[in-house]
């Protein structure tokens, strides 16, 4: 039985506990939005990501987070003089999490959609994100275009642009006289969808082209890609609508990086090709 602690020590322990707790509490941002000074003072820029999304954000063999986004974020955080802190998050809730201030930016290829553009403040495009279809290598001869997916099963990720695109594709198939997709299965993340594809539970998985290119590279001979699935699209970096200073800074940095070759180097490193990034946010309906 431990000695009864003195009242003074007890109170000091409570005080220490409270201070510890307070240090973990989220900072309350000013109503007018974050200023760059706020970020500099905090010393860190918190970025929401999905750590199972190669080659933008994913874990290497040592468990460290690496990818195109990690390098890019490192670059503009250096310009700001702060550290980048990536926060792995459930993708289907990433925008609500932005607004509950779990982080201040979203990366991991948040594609432009009409709904998202209403909800967040996007930067100019930083990566290509056109949708493509991943299929089993054995099906390459038969599944040559999206039309061939008529009567087949489709796998998509919850909350992804693929999910927004799916009804349009289905309508397309039906308009061409077919029955549409046989079934659509939604998964919490892409790896689960790829597993389902490999086990023939679905016949195709929608995702952005650069990401699928990496899947092909990592699992040679297992899969194939069908292009021409949707319109050209890109992804932007997102912030809360009130954080105009922050997004302004990001846009400025992206333009600088386009000019000075930083983006070119990163794209070559992570994708193996240069991307065509427009200078303005695409307007979607």
């Amino acid at each position: 039985m431990p000695d009864p602690i003195s009242r003074r020590r007890f109170l000091s322990r409570i005080g220490a506990g409270a201070a510890l707790l307070a240090s973990g509490l989220p900072r309350v941002a000013l109503a007018a939005g974050l200023t760059l000074d706020d970020i500099k003072k905090a010393g860190v820029l918190r970025i929401g990501c999905e750590a199972t999304y190669p080659p933008l954000t994913y874990r290497d063999n040592s468990g460290a987070l690496v990818g195109y986004d990690v390098d890019l974020a490192g670059a503009f955080c250096k310009a700001l003089g702060v550290k980048a802190e990536f926060i792995d998050t459930v993708w289907s809730g990433v925008i609500p999490s932005l607004y509950t201030k779990k982080f201040d930016l979203i990366m991991s290829s948040l594609s432009y959609t009409a709904e998202r553009e209403k909800k967040v403040a996007f930067s100019i495009p930083y990566v290509e994100a056109s949708q493509a279809l991943l299929i089993r290598a054995a099906d390459q001869k038969t599944l040559t275009g999206i039309a061939a997916m008529n009567g087949r099963g489709l796998g998509i990720k919850l909350g992804s642009p693929g999910q927004t695109l799916e009804p349009k594709l289905d309508a397309q198939l039906k308009a061409a006289g077919g029955a549409g997709f046989k079934e659509v299965k939604t998964f919490d993340d892409h790896p689960a969808a790829y597993m389902a594809l490999a086990e023939s539970k679905v016949d195709g998985v929608l995702n952005t082209l650069p990401t699928l290119a990496l899947v092909l590279k990592n699992a040679p001979g297992k899969y194939a890609i069908v292009k021409g699935v949707g319109a050209d699209n890109w992804a932007g970096i997102a912030a809360r609508t009130e954080d105009t200073a922050l997004i302004g800074f990001i846009d400025q940095q992206l333009r600088t990086f386009k000019q000075d070759g930083t983006l070119h180097a990163l794209q070559q490193k992570w994708f193996g090709f240069d991307m065509n990034l427009p200078d303005a946010i695409p307007v979607l309906s």
Partner: peptide, 24 residues
Amino acid sequence: LSAISVYELTHAGQEIIATYFAPF
């Protein structure tokens, strides 16, 4: 079961949230 794409109650809710951003 939402994790293996079964369309049950939780999964249905998750899909609404992903589209309409009203988690609460």
